[in-house]
């Protein structure tokens, strides 16, 4: 199976079950560099599982995932971890900031995991915090900032390594619409400016409207809405 031309990340016929619960049942996905793709669908439809599979966090039971010409299934756990460190970025709804680290340290963390020296990593982190308009929070801990601010810090952290794919799982789920939209604007602007692809899992249409394209997951099967027309 060859991925569509120009595709950065492609999944074919993904299947994944947690015990008797089928989460993915032949899902398809592909994304181009710089593209923002929304993954929508009702609760429990398998959106998050698709994201976890695409990001190499959870191995699918069957099917293929190709990233930049490489098959994810053929990689060891350590290789996939390294991929996540250097090529991918993550924004989740809850709990992604390490509560004991300050905001700037949180943002610097992925760089440091890749081996960047502390000073350099924290300088880069500060630049990103500035871009996301939260540079005044650098020395604070996640427990001391608001939800919207925390989410911006998380976006900064997802982008600091200049990833080629950002995975965002309900990134505005815990925010009000004003904060949520600001976070979405900052996320998509920043991603476009670095030509990063964004996989955006959400159940909110207004959040999905920030994407270039959407796919809908229902009962573990994906549906590309562009092709439906």
């Amino acid at each position: 199976m060859t991925p569509p031309p120009g595709s950065l990340l492609t999944a074919r016929d993904l299947r994944k079950a947690y015990g008797p619960t089928v989460a993915l049942d032949g899902a398809e996905f592909s994304i181009h560099p710089g593209e923002v793709v929304a993954v929508m669908g009702p609760s429990g439809s398998g959106k998050s599982t698709l994201l976890h599979c695409l990001a190499g966090i959870v191995p699918p039971d069957s099917g293929s995932i190709t990233y930049d010409g490489r098959e994810l299934a053929g990689m060891s756990d350590a290789e996939r971890s390294a991929l996540r460190r250097s090529e991918f970025g993550f924004v989740f709804q809850f709990g992604q900031l390490v509560p004991e680290l300050t905001c700037v340290e949180n943002v610097a963390l992925p760089l440091r995991l890749c081996g960047t020296p502390r000073r350099k990593a924290e300088r880069a982190a500060l630049t990103w915090l500035e871009r996301l308009e939260v540079d005044d929070l650098g020395g604070k801990r996640p427990g001391e900032v608001s939800g919207g601010q925390g989410q911006r810090v998380a976006v900064a952290r997802a982008l600091v390594t200049a990833p080629r794919v950002v995975f965002a799982d309900e990134p505005t789920g815990a925010l009000d619409s004003l904060n949520g939209e600001r976070v979405m604007e900052l996320l998509t602007d920043a991603a476009r400016s670095t030509n990063a692809a964004v996989v955006l899992v959400t159940h909110e249409a207004r959040v999905a409207a920030y994407s270039d394209r959407e796919i809908v997951v229902r009962d573990g099967r994906s549906r590309d809405m562009e092709r439906a027309v």
Binding site: A205, Y210, D212, M225, E226, V229
Partner: peptide, 14 residues
């Protein structure tokens, strides 16, 4: 689905 895609397209424009 067609309607949904159309709605979302309008939303994107807005």
């Amino acid at each position: 689905d067609i309607q949904r895609a159309e709605h979302l397209r309008s939303m994107r424009v807005l």
